[in-house]
Design a protein around this nucleic acid. Structure first.
Length: 415
RNA sequence: GGAGGGGUGCCCGAGUGGUUAAAGGGGACGGACUGUAAAUCCGUUGGCUACGCCUACGUUGGUUCGAAACCAACCCCCUCCA
């Protein structure tokens, strides 16, 4: 990571202090820009799913901090680029999404992050922009003549993202090759429409950001700037945001506030301070104190992290509720309401219930879980896969608790 | 368009006619130890109405008592050439 320059502007200083700074172009000028005026900056996201996940959270926090510092964030949704079908990442071509799906995804993504950013018409309110607005209307030849001529294939081939692919002998379609051109073009459009001169992104997007800056020079003769955030990995080196159940989605419909809270609660020791800085608004002095806690005491810091991070995404009410549910479930060993809950008709076989509760993907898996002593009914290990569960297993509140391992609990209510 | 190489389970990757539901690794899940952490160790890792049955090695068809392995056609990917 490049050494962070000594910035003067409030925004960039905070950005560095909170560990979100990786690199930027023209640091001195950019710093001056942030110090003297309200800056409009954007970050782009794809619309391939109906929710963003934790991997995008650093970027979203960047928008949030821009807003907090009085600047204007633009959330650029890749409605146009998604229509083309981004072939990156996987070796299979992704299924093309219909316009309706993309629109639905866009709305869903937006609803999932409504606590993170304030949208509106105010000077530092965030705005949502969809690049389909301009990409859809482009014409091939005029576009090539106006924009395409500024791109050197020689240089594009040497870009990290492209080179990596070629070196690994993985397919790289022409479509994908064009992505950096479309992204660069987005930057220019956002400048024309909103006076946006700053693009933020993950450090892996540096090449594309630079392309946009170059294009700005050539097309409109204006100096653009790039600001990147580091790739966040856990202390033990894993990519952040993947758990048992898959990606940690931001939308409550995919990952409940309770599960989201749990995700942060299970942060590795070595990450607590860093994550507090990156993913909460907590004052730095307080973070310093929390991360200095030793051993088991660090668990308290993790709870604070979990509640603060959940509050930013889902609101403080939901966060407090998740914290309370967790406290009762883990510390009091109670059947705290607020745990994930399903309804099922009883009596039913234990295997069916475990599958219905999402604790196992199939009866076989549930069976294996039992063999490994991992499935619990009301905190008692189940040993018989043929066990029939009936109303006698219900507690005073009329629910029963199924658990896989020590951490995953699901309440079952009779239908 | 031509020549060559390749498509195996969540991922990577062995396997060139039977003992292969498929070595090994990664990941994931469970157990032990802990602090709902990390590291370590152990177990599990296609499905089912389960000592048996079904489905699986790009697709379809064929050879064979028997195929992921052999043959044919097709689809897709990579490399080089034009």
């Amino acid at each position: 990571m490049p050494a962070a320059p000594q910035f003067q502007s409030e925004f960039l200083r905070t950005f560095v202090e909170r560990g979100a700074y990786y690199d930027c172009s023209g640091p001195a000028e950019l710093d001056g820009l942030f110090a003297k005026e309200r800056v409009t900056a954007y970050i782009g996201f794809d619309c391939t799913a109906d929710s963003l996940h934790v991997g995008s959270l650093v970027q979203l926090m960047t928008l949030r901090r821009l807003q907090q510092a009085g600047h204007k964030p633009i959330l650029l949704m890749g409605g146009g680029t998604t229509k083309a079908g981004d072939p990156s990442g996987k070796d299979e071509t992704r299924q093309l999404l219909t316009n309706e799906q993309i629109e639905a995804n866009k709305q869903s993504i937006l609803s999932g992050i409504r606590h993170l950013l304030k949208f509106g018409d105010g000077p530092s309110d965030a705005i949502l922009v969809d690049n389909a607005q301009w990409l859809d209307k482009l014409e091939w030849i005029p576009f090539l003549r106006e924009v395409g001529r500024h791109f050197s294939v020689n240089r594009m081939l040497s870009m990290e993202s492209v080179k990596l692919r070629l070196d690994r002998e993985q397919p790289l379609s022409f479509l994908e090759f064009n992505y950096s051109i479309m992204q660069a073009y987005d930057f220019v459009e956002l400048y024309k429409r909103y006076g946006c001169r700053v693009q933020s992104s993950g450090s892996d997007q540096w090449g594309n950001v630079v392309s946009g800056i170059d294009l700005g020079h050539r097309l409109v003769g204006t100096q653009f700037y790039g600001l990147t955030t580091p790739l966040i990995t856990t202390a033990s080196g894993a990519k952040m945001g993947k758990t048992a159940a898959g990606a940690v989605w931001l939308n409550a419909g995919r990952v409940s506030p309770y599960d989201y809270w749990q995700f942060w609660r299970n942060t590795e020791d070595g990450d607590v301070g860093r994550f507090l800085r990156l993913f909460t608004d907590m004052p730095l002095a307080e973070i310093k104190r929390l991360e200095s806690l030793q051993g088991a005491e660090l668990n308290d810091a993790k709870k604070i992290l979990a509640t603060a991070a959940t509050a930013i995404l889902h609101g403080s009410e939901a966060a407090d509720k998740a914290a309370d549910t967790a406290r009762r479930a883990f510390e009091d060993g109670a059947m705290a309401e607020g745990l994930p809950t399903i309804t099922a008709k009883l009596p039913d076989g234990i295997l069916n219930l475990a599958v219905a509760a999402g604790l196992a993907a199939s009866n076989s898996e549930a069976r294996k879980l039992i063999t490994n002593n991992g499935l619990k009914l009301n905190d008692a290990a189940v040993s018989d896969p043929k066990l029939m569960v009936d109303a006698s297993a219900l507690n005073a509140d009329g629910v029963l608790k199924l658990s896989s391992g020590k951490k995953k609990h699901v309440l079952v209510k009779p239908a």
